[in-house]
Design a protein around this nucleic acid. Sequence first.
DNA 1: CAAGGTATAATGTATTAACAATTGGACTTT
DNA 2: AAAGTCCAATTGTTAATACATTATACCTTG
Lengths: 243, 243
Amino acid sequence: MKKYYIDHKSPIPLHVQAEEILRKMINASEYKNGKLIPNELELAKQLAISRTTLRQALNKLVYEGLLSRKKGIGTRVVENVVSSKSNKWLSFSQEMEARGIHIKNYELHLSWVKPDESLKQFFEIKANHKVLKMERLRGTIDSPFVYFISFFHPRICLTGEEDFKQPLYEMLKNEHSIIATLSREEISARSCDRFIADKLEITTGSPILFRKRFVYDQAERPIEYNLGYYKGDSFIYTVESRR
Amino acid sequence: MKKYYIDHKSPIPLHVQAEEILRKMINASEYKNGKLIPNELELAKQLAISRTTLRQALNKLVYEGLLSRKKGIGTRVVENVVSSKSNKWLSFSQEMEARGIHIKNYELHLSWVKPDESLKQFFEIKANHKVLKMERLRGTIDSPFVYFISFFHPRICLTGEEDFKQPLYEMLKNEHSIIATLSREEISARSCDRFIADKLEITTGSPILFRKRFVYDQAERPIEYNLGYYKGDSFIYTVESRR
DNA sequence: CAAGGTATAATGTATTAACAATTGGACTTT
DNA sequence: AAAGTCCAATTGTTAATACATTATACCTTG
C-alpha cells in the first residue's frame, strides 16, 4: 500500500490535498468498492491533519457520491454508479475518471457535412452552411460503450486541428471562448441498428440508451447537437432533483 | 421582512434548520436573485448559531447551486436556478397531460411483501417489517406504456384504502403529511423479460427504458423505491440543466 | 434460549478561536 | 489625474474540544 503525505507548507489547502489523496486511493482500489475506509480519527492521524479538516475532504467526496457515510458504522466507497448530477457539469471523461474508470478514445472522425432539416432548425442556419460533424467512439480499456455523433454550429469555427484530448467543453472555453451553459437532453431506449452494433461490439437489436443533447451558451444560442448511443447494460444515467 | 428563528431545543440539527430558513428566504425573494445575503458573522448572530454551523448550511446550498460565495465579497443568490428544477416535479400523469397525452390506469395491484436485500438497505429496516408493494400499469387510451413497481417505507402506513386516483405525491401530502422533496434516479436501457413484455403488450426482448427511483422526504429519509419499465420507443425522458 | 442492557466504535453536531487570502474602495503620492 | 498603498470587510482554512447519536457485538438476566 502506497503511502501519501500531506505537505503542510504547500499553498494548497490541506483539505484539498486530503481530497486528492482519497481520490487516488479509491481509484487505485486501495480503498475498495463497497468497503469501509479507515475511520475519521485514524485517517486524520495518518494524514496528520485535524478531524475537521479531514471531514471537509470527506464531505466533498460524499457530495459527489464517491463515498457514503453511516453513523455508527463508518465510511464506505460507493459501488460504481455512473452519475450525471445536473449541477456538476463534469465532462463525460472527467466524470468517469472521478470514479476510477479510465476512458479511452477508440475512434475520432471529423467531417464537414450539409445540415439536415432538424439541424438547420436547431442551428437556425441555411442549408449552404456546412457544419462540423464529429464522431467519437469511447469506452473503457476493455470495450467501447458509447458512440457519439456531434454537430457544431458554424459560428464555432472549429478547424479540426483542435486538441481533442482535453475535455471538449474545456477546449471550447480555452481555445474559442465559448462557454456551454445550458443543456437539454432527451433520453429513450432503442434497439441498435447494425452500424451502432458494429461500433459498440454488440448484437444488432440489443437495447441501447439513446441520448439526444442540445447544448447552448449563456445567451441560449445553440452550440452543439449531440447524439449518444450508450450500450444499454453498462451505462446508467443518474438524475438528482429537489423541490 | 419575516423573521425566522432557530429552535435550539429541537431534535432537528441546527444546520438543517438554518438551511431550511435560508431556502425559504431565497424562495420568498427576501434574499434576492443576484444580490448579496448578509455576511456570515451577521447571519450567524441573527440565527444565534456559530459561524461553523452556519457554514455547514451555506455549503450545502452552494453545492446545490443556489448560492455562490466569493472571498472578500460575500455570498450571492445565484440567478436562474430554480425554474427548471421545481417544475421537473410534476407527477407522471401531470407531466403527460401537459404534453396533451391523457393517462389511463390499466391495472392497480397492492400487496404487502417481505423486503429483499436492496429494499432493506434503502429503507434501513429489518426483514420482519413488511412493505407495501404497489404495481401499476399505465398508458394512453390506446395502449399501456409503463409498468411501475413501487415500495413504500413501513412508516408511511398506507392502508390500501387510499384514493389512488389523485396524483401519488399529492395524496401522500394530503392524507399522510409526507412531503417528497428529493429524488434520485438511475436510468438505463434493457431488454424486457416476458412478464414486462406481456404487460406492455410488446415482444419479449424489446428495448425498454428502465428507471430506478429513490424518493426521500425533507430530512432525506427514504419514502419510496420505484421501478419503472417504459416502452422504449414511446417514452422520452427530458433533462434540463444549467450551470 | 430469548430479551434486554451495556460497552465500544464510528460518524454527527456544535462551539470557539485564530489567522490567511482576496477584494474593493478609500486614501496617498506622484 | 493616474498610479500605487493601505485598510476594512468578507470568506477561506485549520485546529482543538466536547458531547450526541447510531449500530454492532457481547454480556447479563429471567
